[in-house]
Amino acid sequence: MRKNIFIITIFFAVLGLLSGSAFGLSETFKNNIYNPGKLKPIDSVLKVKVGEKAPDFTLPSISGEKISLHQLKGKKNVVISFVPAAWTPVCSDQWPGYNIAKTIFDENDAVLLGITVDNIPTLFAWTKQMGKLWFHVLSDFWPHGKVADMFGVLRSDGVSERALFVIDKEGILQYAHVGDINKRPDLKDLAKELEKLKNR
């Protein structure tokens, strides 16, 4: 009986080794990504309006600072990127793209604030895989999703939508985009909106 168990174990071990090599090596970051599958594209109702004052908030950053929207008033245009959750497929790609696109933000005198409802330790570990980020990553963990809810992008399962907001230096919301949670928004659209601010 023991012999049979040994043989079966060897069989599956060999099979496992062979099948794994057929797909080549995988990257550490990607191996740690949890795939939630296809989700309902949008699951919330926006509470803010373009042309109106954006709601103020203060959130902790992974840098250890507390960041408030009003601190940036009169100084910088602000882009807020809500992504649903750390360690998920689309979100893990979106911010690394913005990380190499700093010039698009700089040219339009804008800063980026990345927000999720994850806690600081999770965000710290996750964003570390992306390399050194030039923008603040803020945690809307507690009270859970309060800021996401203020903007109307908190989904019924407690994560945020994949949303982009552009707020001008006067604190007025100039662009609100809540996209399909399963898809990454094209950088072109954000670049176009930021360009509009420069021409205002």
Partner: peptide, 12 residues
């Protein structure tokens, strides 16, 4: 069993 494993490999 090893022969079976190797036969399945190309299928993968």
């Amino acid at each position: 069993l090893l022969f079976l494993a190797l036969s399945i490999y190309p299928v993968y």
